[in-house]
Design a protein around this nucleic acid. Sequence first.
DNA 1: CATGAATGAGACTTCATTCAT
DNA 2: TATGAATGAAGTCTCATTCAT
Lengths: 233, 233, 233, 233
Amino acid sequence: MAGASKEQLRDGAVRTAEIEAKPLPMTARGRRSRQALLDAANEVFARDGFADARITDIADTAKAAHGSFYTYFSSKEEIFVALLKELEEDLRSPAERNAEEPAESEDGQARDPYESILRANKAYLTAYRQHAAIMIVWEQVATLNAGVEDLRREASDRFAGRIESVIRHWQETGVADPALEPEYAALALTGMVSNFVYRWSARGSDYTLDKAAEQLSLLWANSLGVRVPGNRA
Amino acid sequence: MAGASKEQLRDGAVRTAEIEAKPLPMTARGRRSRQALLDAANEVFARDGFADARITDIADTAKAAHGSFYTYFSSKEEIFVALLKELEEDLRSPAERNAEEPAESEDGQARDPYESILRANKAYLTAYRQHAAIMIVWEQVATLNAGVEDLRREASDRFAGRIESVIRHWQETGVADPALEPEYAALALTGMVSNFVYRWSARGSDYTLDKAAEQLSLLWANSLGVRVPGNRA
Amino acid sequence: MAGASKEQLRDGAVRTAEIEAKPLPMTARGRRSRQALLDAANEVFARDGFADARITDIADTAKAAHGSFYTYFSSKEEIFVALLKELEEDLRSPAERNAEEPAESEDGQARDPYESILRANKAYLTAYRQHAAIMIVWEQVATLNAGVEDLRREASDRFAGRIESVIRHWQETGVADPALEPEYAALALTGMVSNFVYRWSARGSDYTLDKAAEQLSLLWANSLGVRVPGNRA
Amino acid sequence: MAGASKEQLRDGAVRTAEIEAKPLPMTARGRRSRQALLDAANEVFARDGFADARITDIADTAKAAHGSFYTYFSSKEEIFVALLKELEEDLRSPAERNAEEPAESEDGQARDPYESILRANKAYLTAYRQHAAIMIVWEQVATLNAGVEDLRREASDRFAGRIESVIRHWQETGVADPALEPEYAALALTGMVSNFVYRWSARGSDYTLDKAAEQLSLLWANSLGVRVPGNRA
DNA sequence: CATGAATGAGACTTCATTCAT
DNA sequence: TATGAATGAAGTCTCATTCAT
């Protein structure tokens, strides 16, 4: 009478209690095992996608017994979400730390708008590239699961929101085209970059990162009406 | 998706592309059954995504016996591809027929570039909107299966390719920024639109289609350096 | 991604729909298979009890593939309940048909009260004996599952209720001790019989059915104050 | 109860009876831990029944590590038997001490038979009531495991045996109906009481203990032919 | 002794696919 | 062709029990 039976018999009332996330391990050994499973999950999800990833494979890859998986996670969903949260930290560092830097360059001058755009795009492309496989899976799963969808929307809204205020600021200071709706523009332009890198990763294209960053930034700058140094009047 | 499926997808990456073993039905009754299955598949894929769609559900939705499915299709992949081919016809009509029109308006004048962009975007948004759910699934499956991936790349390359030549033409005629690489720009801009409509569908946003088309076209025109009528110099 | 995954991903909202009982089979072959599973379940439950019965064993006993079980039942609980319902029919026939007979014997005389008791007890013992193993399991499972508990209570209340009115009638006609509360007495006396037969079955006792019926009836008659023919004044 | 359990129960039927391998703890701390596990087991068995009780839960409830369970007990069966032995002490005190009292009341007169019955029933109902949940589990497990079955039969035989001699004695002294077989009567009447209290516990009935004791005793006395003070001739 | 992590056998379920009618 | 029952491989999850610290 493995598993299901108890719940079924007792109307689930007694022990169900929603989806109680497993507690973090207390010992160092436990932490190592949990981390090994997360690393393995990253590898397996990246390779097989969400739907085809098997818990068995994750455990095997982590060199753990099947059952050990359930010591730390209660489902494929749960480890996937845990993985994304870990990933977010990584992404926030390179991608956002940059944006949080002062708007001035080293020489104390206000940073040139085009240069800001270029730096941001380069940072984004770099970060995405590094985690491309799992990012793609993330995008795929987003449509299926509310929790994941939220994480994703949150992440992209945070980014788009920052861009939106920058655009607004540039409009106020006469740098950007006032005919644009900052909300639409921010959504469209951030989407342009993420879609570009997605397709770029999906096919084995041979665009270089620098060239891509430069072209995307040029489109971005033009579209906003931001002057690009060294470009035609 | 028990067991078999994974293998199929994997093998599919290698072999699928041109299977389509089952012959089209000869009798009217047969054609009706096949069409019912296709319609049902559209509904089920749109609702459940590819991985979670069950052949059982497709058959049930089509009010056919499970076994009947195999009279017309030999796998989930096959009916999915058949569905996409049907879909492409629909998409080509509104979205591309437009683009295939002569570049001149009725009065014999060369069509205004911005107007071209606006028309194209509006047509694309309209078509995508109509088939949003299945388009999203298409995008998801693209990474999993080579046959589907090909269909998808083909479709978007066809579109991006056309844009690419337009840009090239506009650069030659001094309408568009010569600093742009047409290939990058076409990929990025078509991606911008498709990503926008994707996110737009995913959330229940309340942007109107006209406003969205206008803003996207404005960004697009600006980014290329195409003059927008009635906008600041 | 077998089973669980879909439900988990989609919040269970779409397809869960409570516990939709499987439809009865449409073909004769299907009916035969279903019946074979029920018979097998009877055998397995009787031998192993509810908790230790394995679906695998039921399927094997019925000479069906594991998966076939799920064509007709969706869980161990469901087949168990189906089995009990079938059992009830059997029990009702010998045990109750008897009680529903006219209160007069063939010669047109009002039936002797003691004789009524004896006949009822003998019928009950006979029926219970025949299905002893599964009845015991029924009693065990009753505490665990609300649906089964209800079935059981219903069955015994129906029996106790009938006894209660008989006692009341005998009290009114001066046959039975008026100091008794019919409700308590009915519960206690029906319980006495069912408990007796339960313990009797559990151990391999060597009491004979006739002797047991006679002794139980004697206790029963005495306790109510019903005169027993041939007994001391 | 994954896998192992079934075998254990089966083997248990053959071997269990006298295992009790683990030695009692030497230190005070050890004794406290053991007792905490027993108390926890009582709670968990009462709530979940035997088959669904998990060692994990027992350990958790006792606020002990899972591993600690095995310091004191080597299986679910073992702790269950240990628990029953503890329980028996409790039951023997109120229920049997009473019966072991001299058959005379304080004034030196032989105790009235009806009064004896009433006292015994009241004591039994009280004791059972107090431990109802675990008693029910006991009854259920009895069919599964020989060791437990023995304990149970021993307990009820001890009780029924005593009743049997009382009946025999009353028959010899002309107090009870000589047509009764003392063995049957004792089994049936003790069963009547235990079944009554069982059903009474199972449903949330509102019978009072005193009323129940009185009615059961009345039935009991009547059935034996024992004169009930204050009742009709 | 206590702890909590690790193990793995075993049971459950699903569903694509085949087949007899 | 249509039907619906049968099959079984594959994957999920649980939990008693062992073990290193």
